[in-house]
């Protein structure tokens, strides 16, 4: 196990390095100047400011300098406002991760419950309800949901804060908006798998042995049904990151989404690099966790012996 994790870890570092290199050269090749107010600057001033950020040097020197800083944990300063990239990221980090994690967990839990119930009570109202929820989740874009939730629940009904950040209540609506697609996917997968698993021979055997219904469902059925659900969790986690960009702006959540999109369009090199690294680490870790979970749930996948 430890060896496997070590190996995975070193692969993650290599992946990250490639991402950093690719993004660095890509973003520097984009057209346009990174200076915010170049319109009002004389050419000498522009050159001077570029020099302050070391942008006047040849690209490969800049690249090695950046890597050097990175090794020491220095992500540089944002060109747009001269503040430290690490500080900017840390500001948005907790809010983004909180609504993301809460949305994901909420989605998984509700999705699991709905999926299992739907499979156990096939063709009842519970099944229809689960199917209905999953249909809404797959077919209504999360930004439409987010805007509708914010306006109707937040403004018209006034049950929860329409947006902004501050108390726990503020996190509920954004998390719900993010959780919908997760609920949809998970409940669909779990239901399909459960239906299949329930018809397997070993289920009949278990029943014949007199094991309680609950124990059968949890121990045998759910566990097997979880395997495919875990596979989709990686993409789902990545999807939540994308979804959070819009959800954050609709709910005025002080997260990273806006920082990210802004930094690319305004060519704030250091900021783009910083947020890319941040998101990449998140995605890579999510994939890694999913892999580990996979091994835990399905003993057939022997992590310790896994080889390429």
């Amino acid at each position: 196990m430890a060896r496997y994790i070590l190996k995975r870890f070193s692969l993650m570092i290599v992946t990250l390095f490639i991402i950093i290199t690719a993004t660095f050269f890509l973003i520097h090749s984009l057209p346009g100047s990174p200076l915010q107010n170049a319109e009002k600057l004389t050419p000498e001033l522009q050159a001077q400011i570029l020099a302050q950020y070391g942008l006047d040097q040849p690209i490969h020197i800049q690249y090695f300098k950046y890597l050097g800083g990175l090794v020491q944990g220095d992500l540089g300063t944002s060109i747009a406002n001269g503040q430290s990239v690490t500080g900017l990221l840390m500001n948005g980090f907790s809010a983004s991760v909180f609504i993301g994690a809460q949305g994901l967990i909420l989605g998984i839990v509700i999705g699991l419950i709905l999926g299992v119930l739907a499979a156990l009570k096939r063709n009842t109202w519970i099944d229809s309800f689960a199917t209905g929820t999953s249909i809404i989740g797959v077919s209504v874009p999360s930004f439409v949901l987010a805007a509708t939730l914010s306006y109707f629940i937040g403004v018209e009904l006034g049950w929860l804060p329409a947006n902004l950040w501050g108390t726990y209540e503020h996190t509920i609506l954004p998390s719900i908006a993010l959780s919908f697609p997760v609920v949809a996917q998970i409940s669909r997968y779990v239901r399909t798998e459960m239906v299949e698993v329930l018809e397997q021979d070993y289920m009949r055997t278990a029943k014949a042995k007199g094991i309680s219904r609950l124990a059968i469902t949890v121990k045998h059925a759910l566990r097997n049904a979880l395997i495919p659900a875990v596979t989709v969790m990686g993409p789902l986690a990545a999807g939540i990151i994308t979804g959070s960009l819009v959800v954050e702006s609709i709910f005025a959540v002080p997260g990273m989404g806006k920082i990210f999109v802004d930094s690319i369009t305004s060519k704030d090199y250091t900021m783009v690099m910083g947020s890319t690294i941040f998101y990449s680490v998140l995605i890579i870790s999510a994939l890694f966790i999913v892999d580990l979970l996979y091994g835990i749930i399905d003993p057939r996948i022997r992590i310790s012996g896994a080889k390429e």
Binding site: S94, L164, G166, I297
Partner: peptide, 28 residues
């Protein structure tokens, strides 16, 4: 294996919630 799964999920949950506990400073 299963016994590991539950604490693992629990830790993930607690950790992610803990991260934010500090971010709720003054409310609006």
């Amino acid at each position: 294996k299963k016994r590991k799964l539950v604490p693992f999920l629990a830790i993930t949950l607690v950790a992610s919630l803990g991260v934010t506990a500090c971010s709720f400073g003054g409310g609006a």
